[in-house]
């Protein structure tokens, strides 16, 4: 079916393409600016005013300072630890819950599901959660970041929905062959659910990588700080002074400017690099979640 495009529609199409190009520019330019600024010569960058269209001079001093900074390295190490251990806990817990709550003929399934849904609409809030973590003796320990968020109820429901979509006949034939629930979960359900598992790994991983608030309220010991908390100090509380111990005295004030940018690049690069390859899984996950609604 073809039809003639009116003049108005042609104009609209051009306007639309123009708008999309503008949107892409507005989205990407901040990242480009930061990348160029981080590579610029600190002294020139400190004096520079205006739109940065290419690096001003070239210097890797800022990256050197960032990578030599012990707190950034400690933060990176801690974040990797929280991401790996935290996501592992998330996956095990979410899978167990999703499997058990997706089976038929379990008497207490609906009451338990109901109790879980309640926690999605009503929760104790910040202060009682903080006091709970305190009374469990988890304050200022890695467990305070790993245990309270062990299951995301939305993710549990998404995974449960995916498990429910697997034909019951597969489970039944396995049961006739004498398989118990553990075997059914690990040999049948999980191998058939790789897309949803990929989505869960990605969401939990990004969540752990980006989170700062739990660390802010639960951790006191700087040796335990995740990267985001260190970033907060450098980017927002403006304490680049702490970082300058490695840099030469003469351009201390100047390098502070580019250090900020280099820190952003170093901390965001992993996500920026893997993002294009994983995008389809993220989108897939949103769609699974949307189908539920």
């Amino acid at each position: 079916m073809t039809y003639k495009r009116s003049v108005g529609e042609s104009i609209f199409s051009w306007f639309n393409v123009g708008f999309m190009l503008l949107l892409c520019t507005v989205t990407l330019y901040p990242f480009i600016y930061i990348l160029f600024a981080s590579l610029s010569d600190p002294t020139e960058m400190a004096r520079f005013r205006g739109l940065l269209l290419f690096p001003k001079g070239f210097s890797l001093e800022a990256y050197k300072a960032v990578l030599e900074n012990p707190m950034i390295l400690v933060g990176y190490r801690n974040t990797l630890y929280y991401v790996v251990i935290g996501t592992a806990i998330n996956l095990v817990m979410t899978t167990l819950g999703a499997y058990a709550l997706s089976r038929q003929g379990v008497l207490l399934k609906n009451p338990i599901m109901f109790l879980i849904v309640i926690t999605m609409v009503f929760n104790g809030g910040l202060i009682p959660s903080f006091l709970l973590v305190n009374s469990l003796g988890l304050l200022n320990s890695a467990w305070a970041l790993l245990l309270p968020g062990a299951i995301n109820s939305f993710n549990l429901i998404i995974m449960r929905t995916a498990f429910q979509g697997i034909p019951v006949s597969l489970e039944e034939s396995a049961r006739i062959d004498g398989a118990n629930d553990w075997v059914i979960l690990t040999r049948i359900i999980l191998p058939l659910s790789l897309p949803v598992i990929a989505v869960m790994i990605l969401w939990y991983t990004v969540g752990h990588w980006n989170s700062y608030f739990s660390a802010l309220i639960y951790l006191r010991d700087r040796e335990l700080f995740p990267l985001q908390l260190i970033l907060r100090e450098i980017l927002i509380s403006n304490s680049t002074d702490n970082m300058m111990t490695g840099a030469a005295t003469s351009d201390r004030a100047d390098i502070g400017v580019t250090i900020k940018y280099a820190t952003i690049i170093v901390s965001t690069l992993p996500i920026l690099l893997i993002y294009p390859f994983l995008q389809k899984y993220f989108v897939h996950g949103v769609l699974i979640g949307a189908l539920k609604e």
Partner: peptide
């Protein structure tokens, strides 16, 4: 996918 700390930073 950018952390809120980096966005605000």
């Amino acid at each position: 996918f950018i952390s809120i700390v980096v966005v605000v930073g």
